[in-house]
């Protein structure tokens, strides 16, 4: 009997085990299901991580150069032309690129602007509490968190504006640096959160391209929006932008893109 079993084609018994009377696949209950560990589960991460880092090595200088062009173009269009300073970056001596940062000067807020910002923060707190505390509780928490940050910023700029240690250029440079860091961390992160799924290699490659492309476009646009907002509203809103619409926003964007590509049919 043992000899007979050895003669059976490889995989036949396991295939028969999941074959229904009509010849279709019997699906396992979700409680018992797991993904089959195959060579692809090791090869896909290796191939895609290697490809991603190679692409980043080659393209990151071009991507950041394009960010500079984008800043230059849109700031001109928006009527706020600015000199672009180039900051060379070196990550582990491997990834060499330059961040082009607009040298736009943002003004300190005057007392009226501080008052308006504080009033808006307090008004938002009150309005969100009155209107949304039942149905929109998370929104209330979010608004209250933002308002608290804004009120601290108002107090800061009212009492000691001269001590605010950041400029608009340093804010943008830090944000772009965080953005490139995200791009550089992503291949490793995706290796164990996405590439291990049973999607085909072309789908994973497409998903990776989608994530990188979207982030590469959104990151400079985000900081362009910061520049426009800070120039329009003064430095008083920069702490809020840094805290809520900076790195956290980039990460939330990544999670949204990740969720979308993972939801694709394998």
């Amino acid at each position: 009997m043992a000899g007979k079993l050895r003669d059976l084609p490889k995989g036949l018994l396991s295939a028969l085990r999941y074959q229904s009377h009509s010849g279709r696949l019997i699906r396992q209950h979700r409680a018992l299901r797991r993904l089959n560990f195959q060579r692809a589960n090791v090869l896909h991460p290796i191939v895609l991580v290697a490809a991603s880092y190679t692409a980043l090595y080659l393209l990151l200088p071009e991507i950041t150069r394009a960010w500079g062009l984008l800043f230059g173009f849109w700031l001109d269009v928006l009527g706020r032309p600015a000199l672009l300073t180039t900051i060379p970056e070196d990550v582990f001596g491997i990834f060499l690129f330059a961040l082009a940062v607009p040298e736009t000067v943002a003004r300190q807020p005057d007392v009226a602007e501080i008052g308006i910002a504080a009033s808006l923060a307090l008004g938002a707190m009150l309005a969100s509490y009155l209107a949304g505390r039942r149905r929109w509780l998370p929104l209330v928490y979010f608004v209250w968190g933002c308002a608290a940050i804004q009120l601290v910023a108002c107090a800061y700029f009212y009492v000691a504006p001269y001590r605010y240690p950041h400029t608009l250029a340093s804010h943008v440079a830090d944000g772009l640096r965080a953005g490139t860091s995200l791009l550089l961390v992503l291949p490793l992160l995706l290796s164990f959160t996405y590439y291990v799924f049973d999607h085909s290699l072309p789908k994973k490659l497409l998903g990776t391209i989608v994530i990188f492309a979207a982030l590469a476009i959104c990151i400079p646009v985000l900081y362009l929006a910061h520049v426009v907002l800070v120039v329009g509203c003064s430095l008083v809103i920069m702490p809020l932008l840094f805290t809520v619409l900076g790195t956290l926003y980039q990460i939330a964007l990544f999670v949204a893109l990740y969720a979308w590509v993972v939801s694709w049919e394998p």
Partner: peptide, 24 residues
């Protein structure tokens, strides 16, 4: 977020993965 994605993938309800970012 990746744990939820894995759970829903195994559950066979992959469309639900799209609301994972709203977990924020």
């Amino acid at each position: 977020f990746f744990e939820i994605a894995a759970a829903l993938h195994i559950d066979g309800s992959r469309h639900r993965i799209r609301i994972v970012p709203l977990n924020f």
